[in-house]
């Protein structure tokens, strides 16, 4: 799957500031709003938080995948952010999360939505790729690491 089709250089951030789970989610949604990728902040926030309420998306090895389905978007919206200090995201292994992959997908349209999340997860499940991502200094570094450009 071509990650470039979904990711754009203005939705990858090396410098997430928030230090709480709720804060990270809100910050990412705010940045998506600023980048013009979404219009309805509250609807998207509600969708992501509803999904978090069912089961935390904090995975292992510092990876978290907050996501949700909402009709406030017409196509897959994706973002990747880093907070190298680590944030408590109620992760499965209890370790603080440093890499955040967020996707918002429309409820009614078909498309490789989960597949995108899975592809990125598969990529960063390899320790070498994860380290490369965490070593990113600029937004562009992240984009290059993930899309190979």
């Amino acid at each position: 799957m071509n990650l470039k089709k979904v990711l754009s250089p203005d939705t990858v951030w090396v410098d997430l500031k928030a230090d709480t789970k709720q804060g990270i989610i809100e910050e990412m949604i705010d940045r998506l709003l600023a980048a013009g990728k979404i219009n309805d902040r509250e609807a998207v926030l509600k969708a992501v938080l509803e999904r978090e309420a069912k089961m935390s998306t904090g995975m292992q090895n510092g990876v978290a995948i907050p996501h949700g389905k909402s009709d406030a978007v017409t196509g897959l919206v994706a973002a990747i952010g880093l907070n190298k200090a680590g944030v408590n995201f109620d992760s499965m292994d209890g370790s603080p999360s440093t890499i955040f992959i967020m996707t918002i997908s429309p409820t009614k349209r078909t498309g490789p939505h989960i597949q995108f999340l899975a592809e990125v997860s598969r990529l960063i499940s390899q320790p070498a790729e994860r380290d490369k991502l965490l070593a990113a200094k600029t937004h562009a570094d992240i984009y290059e690491t993930l899309t190979g450009k």
């Binding site: 989960i114 597949q115 999340l117 899975a118 592809e119 997860s121 598969r122 499940s125």
Partner: peptide, 10 residues
């Protein structure tokens, strides 16, 4: 194994 991520997540 190469594709278990997508199956597991769905």
């Amino acid at each position: 194994t190469a594709h278990h991520h997508v199956a597991r997540m769905i």
